[in-house]
Simulated scan of single mutants.
Amino acid sequence: MISATEALNRLIEGNRHFVSEAESSTLTDQTRRTALLAGQEPFAIILGCSDSRVPAEIVFDQGLGDLFVIRVAGNIVAPSQVGSVEFAAERFGTPLVIVLGHSKCGAVQATIEELERPQESRSTNLLSIVNRIRPSVEPLLETKAADSHDTLMHHAVRANIRASANHLRHGSQILENLIQQGKLLVVGAEYSIETGVVDFFDGIPS
């Protein structure tokens, strides 16, 4: 298995390839499918948003068996997501976790709307997502960021990414042990729907 730094560089290069609109060279054919019958060794775990505009394999230009992808609205961290990350990190020795949020995130937008104008009609299921995003977004309403919706959204998306990444770093004894042993790196990143560029901004090794 490659190192976390090598895995991160592979994702960075893959995103550059995607943004350049060059023809993808990822392996998705019968030969690759056959090779994976014996098992998988994904080099990165992606905890991303379910938004249809942010398919991880495509934006990182990766093929079958390369990424272990977990998707949920708002890239939130609940017990099932933590368990999924633990599973991949332990079972496959995957050294890198990327929490991938994105610009114009609908779940973050819904959270801001709920904070500004609570709606009794929201389902309890949707509120379970909103309430996980709320703690990272609510303090921003008391800052100058709240003066502009676009600025508020930008800061809220990033605050939510940081919160999810920190939850993975400190909300699981298994993951925390792997991090302390240098076997796992958790990085927060934001995908720009406008440009296609992924900005890795949280937890990057010095």
Rank of each mutant, 00 (worst) to 15 (best):
M1Q: 13
M1H: 14
A4T: 03
A4Q: 02
A4I: 00
T5F: 02
A7D: 07
N9P: 01
R10N: 03
I12P: 08
E13A: 11
H17D: 07
F18R: 07
S20N: 12
T26M: 13
T28M: 09
T31F: 10
R32P: 11
R32I: 01
R32K: 09
A38P: 02
G39T: 01
Q40F: 06
P42M: 12
P42V: 00
F43D: 05
A44Y: 05
I45P: 14
I46S: 10
C49R: 00
V54D: 06
A56L: 09
A56V: 02
E57V: 04
F60R: 07
D61L: 03
G65Y: 04
D66S: 09
L67T: 03
L67I: 08
F68K: 09
F68W: 08
V69S: 09
R71P: 03
I76M: 06
I76A: 10
I76K: 04
V77G: 02
V77D: 08
A78H: 13
A78D: 13
V82I: 15
V82H: 07
G83T: 02
S84C: 00
S84K: 02
E86H: 07
F87M: 11
A88T: 00
A89I: 02
A89F: 04
E90Y: 10
R91Q: 13
F92M: 01
F92R: 02
G93P: 12
T94R: 05
I98Y: 11
V99R: 03
L100A: 04
L100P: 09
H102P: 11
K104I: 09
G106L: 00
Q109N: 10
Q109R: 14
T111K: 03
I112F: 12
L115Q: 06
L115E: 14
L115M: 14
E116T: 05
E116Q: 10
P118E: 01
P118K: 00
E120Y: 01
E120H: 09
S123T: 12
N125E: 15
S128G: 06
I129G: 08
I129W: 00
R132L: 15
R132W: 08
I133P: 15
V137P: 10
E138R: 05
P139D: 10
L141Y: 01
K144M: 13
A145N: 10
H149L: 11
H149C: 02
L152C: 11
M153H: 05
M153Q: 05
H154G: 07
H155E: 11
V157D: 14
R158S: 08
R158Q: 10
N160W: 11
A163S: 15
H167M: 13
H167R: 12
H170L: 06
I174M: 10
I174L: 11
L175H: 07
E176F: 08
N177F: 07
N177L: 14
Q180C: 10
L184C: 03
L185G: 07
V186T: 14
G188I: 02
A189K: 09
A189C: 03
A189T: 04
Y191W: 01
Y191A: 01
S192K: 03
S192I: 04
I193D: 10
E194M: 14
T195L: 07
T195G: 14
G196K: 01
V198D: 06
V198T: 05
D199T: 09
F201S: 03
F201C: 00
F201M: 01
D202R: 00
G203Q: 06
I204R: 13
P205Q: 03
S206K: 12
S206D: 15
